[in-house]
Design a protein around this nucleic acid. Structure first.
Lengths: 192, 192
DNA sequence: GTCTATAAGGTGATAGAC
DNA sequence: GTCTATCACCTTATAGAC
């Protein structure tokens, strides 16, 4: 618990400035000079906190991936149940919403993200697949698998809708998409 | 109309073999020798039909992108209506289903796809965004935009479900996902 | 018209003083 | 922790030879 209250959180400021610029201007087109300028420090000071531009990208997107992993890990802890299903789906949705600003960066600069996370990405995709299978419920038919996949996809609308926090608050986003994903999952019965 | 009926469609055979190998083994890990072997021709003959490995990738994925564009273009032709909505959504779904085998290749080898299509991809993303806005209906609220985005995302389950044609026939896929996407869009009224 | 040479300015990154 | 100064590199643009 160092720095319980600190006068200035430079590292955090850099993180936020970079996230802002990366998501609006793109990773490649954002220079470290611009980031430093926005924070009010020099480029060299920035390097004291982050060892490279890629390190900064890793700090931004890495936390997103970590949070996703944390949700996926819960799949193994408890067996499937209707309550757990909605709970985990909601937790997953929360993670995506919490990182909604990083979405555009990931989508726009896949190449850079691949360069920074190439190896870790395979694990994440595999875990995501396990989550999707779990969501299909016990003893799933192929149609259940499809609907589970569709429900997971629905969450991706956080990114693809192209609306920012000023237009739609997090709470509204959460309600709409959790209900939509639930409606998709509910269709499993129609095909039983 | 050359070659109305031909004894052997070598170029098509190469296309199919490459699609098969790319989607199972991955683009990078598939050698042109393997493709030629599967077709039953030499590597030199393969180069007669396709000038490079990237040219082959372009032939495979290019048709997918062309078909998507054809659907998106219809957005400008006619105004929105409930009937057109389901029609276009179905057409989009058909395109994705028709190219479901190429999905894994695109997802797995984004880097290669980016290298081959980098510039064209921006246009496609922009057109996809326009399609999504059109799907939100006339005078859309933000919540309508979200649900439209979610409906489009649902179609992506064709790829992410990880089921192949032998497990789920195209027709079943189409029915399940078109109904699911429609169910998502139907929720627009709930937030009016 | 096309090609090489060179200049100008911005980039990510490092060294060393304070 | 932050700064100034500086590095090597790359892109862009212009100049002038052919």
């Amino acid at each position: 618990m160092q720095h319980e209250t600190r006068a200035r959180d430079t590292k955090g400021d850099i993180h936020r400035a970079a996230l802002d610029l990366f998501s609006t201007r793109g990773y490649e087109k954002t220079s470290l000079r611009e980031i430093a300028e926005q924070v009010g420090i020099t480029k060299a000071s920035l390097y004291y906190h982050y060892s490279s531009k890629q390190d900064l990208l890793q700090a931004i997107i890495g936390t997103f991936f970590d949070d996703m992993r944390a949700v996926f890990d819960q799949v193994d802890d408890q067996p499937w149940s209707p309550e757990r299903e909605r709970e985990l789906l909601g937790a997953y949705l929360d993670v995506v919403i919490n990182h909604r600003s990083t979405g555009p960066t990931i989508l726009r600069d896949i190449a850079a993200v691949l360069a920074a996370f190439g190896d870790q990405l395979d694990d994440l995709i595999e875990q995501s697949r396990r989550f999707q299978v779990w969501l299909a419920g016990p003893d799933p038919k192929p149609s259940d698998r499809i609907l589970a996949a569709a429900a997971v996809e629905v969450v991706g609308a956080v990114f693809s809708a192209g609306l920012d926090q000023s237009e739609v608050p997090d709470e509204e986003f959460r309600t709409i998409l959790l209900d939509a994903a639930t409606a998709v999952l509910a269709r499993r019965q129609h095909h039983r």
